[in-house]
Structures are given as structure tokens and as C-alpha cells.
Nucleic acid binder design. Structure first.
Lengths: 197, 197
DNA sequence: GTCTATATCTCGATAGAC
DNA sequence: GTCTATCGAGATATAGAC
């Protein structure tokens, strides 16, 4: 946990890495231990030494995704002075994931949508991934002195989710780029205290 | 098929109705024959008399959804003269499904997102549900003499999908209403040949 | 046409040898 | 700590009596 890495810590980490990818590409409920075991090259039975259940692996995946996002957000906050530029950087991030978004949708949105159906407790945990990003958006809108920064943050999320969803349904890269461009135009045009107008 | 309804046609129809609801509330892969059999009060074994596989039931569900949507769209086309009013009617339809959208997301979007992961052939069929609506949107935008009507249609779909997704993730009825209102404002403000401006 | 019984498979999870 | 063997439940699908 501290300076010296536990013997099994690497295995645990590898399980989470593989599960993260497979939960995204296949969905949570459609990914079995066998799938993860095969790709992580770790016997099925060993999983229960590192995690007490499949839900527990999901917990690890969510924590991992949150941590990665926090680091990315902290970096943008440090390197970019203008909150508007920070928001634009977050939107443009989607361009770097074009291929996977078109094939599998947004990793956060699709995970939440799947869990919302029958696993509300797990979905609530998955929603915390959204929280990290929404809260960061809200901070940037607040710095921009925009009215209702929280609502603006949710609106930005909705625009990105909608773009990902439709691009995924139609496997349409051009539309994804069009929508990203439109979101950029919207952000660029926002005036202080001008709300959405 | 024609005037006289086949003996088993009612059972077939009931299976599709129940499956339609359960695929929405639970997801396609997480809904079993037992689930459908229980609620439709039809023994598991009988399913294979009416459908040759689970995929075949999904096919029936998709056809049913498409048929219902076509009827709704035809009605709006008949009763509303202004294409802008028709689009607004389609957007406001979401208000009538608030509760279910917040709980389970958009029935079309979540089904497509689920199938896109590992069942591309089925997803392509599910995308045809989107086609019906997108094509109808496109026709209305064309009548409005807006530039790039097909892109506008996809954009409208994306706005609605994004609103549903975020409202679902946060179980946030107020945000769904806010987004619907914003979409209405956007549609109302569209000028001919003015594109998105 | 309708239903019961069941085959075959895979799932998440556990027991226990080493 | 690591691995094999296996459990009980539940999945889709089928066989065949009525």
C-alpha cells in the first residue's frame, strides 16, 4: 500500500485493468470471470483472493477511472489558465477516443445506462464518475461567471453524451466531429452572465 | 395475418408486449425467457413454437416499436400543419415518459447502446428504430428549408439522447425538463436557411 | 397447439490441496 | 498465495407426451 508493493498487488492491478477494458467493450453483465481470467492470464479461482465478488471488481474499476480522470483534470487546471480553454480541452478529449466511442459508446455513459436498469446500488457508484467531471465543469463555469453553472455543467455532459450515443448508433465519425465542433462553438460563444443566450 | 386472427396470434402478441417492456426495464441480455414467461403467463417451452430464438423475439419487439412510432408520426403529420410544430410535438413526447426515462433511460438509446457492445447484427436492426424517427425529423427540417436537414435531424436526436442519459444517471426530473425546454427554444428560434445560428 | 421434462451450457462463487 | 476441481443456480434450447 505504501512504499513497498504487496506481492499480489500487481495481479490485483492487472485484473482491474483488464476488467476496465472488458466492461467497456462488452458491458458489465456480459463480461464473465472467464473473460477476465483469460485476458489477464490469471486462473478464475484466484479472483476471490483479490476481490470478494464481481461487484467488488467493478468498484475497483470505478475507482481506477475516477483516479485517472482526476489526474487529467488536475493537469488541465495547472497547464491552462483560462477556464474556457479548460472546458474546450475536455471536449476535445473525445477526439482522441473517436474510434472507441464510435464502436462502444462513451465508457461512462454506457456503464451507467446498463447498471441503471437493474443494479441501482452499483449505478449510484458509477454516477460518482460523472460527479468528478460535472463538478470540475461547474468550477470552470463558475470562474466564467456564467449563471447557473451547475446546470451548464450538466448541459455540457448531456451534449457530449448525446453526441457519443448517436455516433455509436450510426457508427458515424463525421457526426461525432460535427457535434464536437458545435459544442466548441457554443462554449466559445458563451458570454459572462449571459447564461445560454 | 389477414381478416381472421390465428389461434396463437394473441399469444405471440402478448409475448412481444411483455418482452418489449422487460427489454426496456431490464435490458435485453439480462431478460430471460423465464422472466417473460412469468409475466406473460405462458410456459417457457411454448416460446419456441412462436419464435425460433431469443433474437427472434427481439426482432418482433423492434418491429412493434417501429410500427407504433410510425403511427404516431403519421398522426402528427396529419394533425399538425407546421413542420416546426410537428418537431415540437415529438420533443414534448418525452414529457409523457418522464418517469420511465428517469428510471430506465430512453428505450431506443439504451437498447442500441447495449447491443452495440457485442451484438452488432442485432444493433443494426435496432438502429432502424432510430432511422424512422431521424428520417421523419429530416423531412420536417427540409420543409423548414433549413440547411443540412439530415445533420439537423441527427443533432435533434443527440440532444434528446443526451438529455435522457444525464437525467437517467442522476435521476433528475428537473434537468430533463430543462433540457426539453432548451430544445424547444432552439427549434423555435431556427430561421430558414439559417442553419444552427 | 399446448405443455412438461429435461438436455447442455455457463455463470458466479467456494473448498481445499499444495 | 496459488491453483484445480467443482458446486448450485439459472441460462437457452429441445424432445416428445398430450
Amino acid at each position: 500500500m505504501q512504499q513497498e508493493q504487496a506481492r499480489g498487488e500487481r495481479n490485483r492491478q492487472r485484473i482491474v485493468e483488464v476488467a476496465d477494458r472488458l466492461f467497456y467493450e462488452q458491458g458489465y453483465n456480459s463480461t464473465s470471470f472467464s473473460d477476465i481470467a483469460r485476458e489477464a492470464e490469471i486462473p478464475r479461482g484466484n479472483f476471490y483472493y483479490y476481490f470478494k465478488s464481481k461487484d467488488d471488481i467493478l468498484e475497483g474499476v470505478i475507482e481506477r477511472r475516477i483516479e485517472e480522470m482526476r489526474e487529467q483534470l488536475a493537469q488541465w487546471r495547472q497547464t491552462l489558465d483560462d477556464p474556457r480553454e479548460r472546458l474546450l480541452a475536455a471536449v476535445r478529449m473525445m477526439l482522441g477516443s473517436e474510434d472507441s466511442i464510435i464502436r462502444y459508446g462513451c465508457p461512462w455513459g454506457t456503464l451507467n445506462a446498463e447498471l441503471a436498469k437493474r443494479q441501482p446500488a452499483l449505478q449510484a457508484r458509477a454516477a460518482s464518475m460523472f460527479d468528478v467531471l460535472v463538478e470540475w465543469y461547474r468550477e470552470q463555469f463558475t470562474e466564467l461567471a456564467v449563471a447557473e453553472p451547475r446546470t451548464m455543467a450538466l448541459h455540457l455532459m448531456a451534449r457530449m453524451q448525446g453526441a457519443s450515443m448517436v455516433a455509436n448508433v450510426y457508427t458515424d465519425r463525421d457526426f461525432l466531429r460535427y457535434e464536437i465542433n458545435e459544442i466548441e462553438r457554443w462554449l466559445t460563444g458563451i458570454r459572462q452572465q449571459g447564461a445560454t443566450r
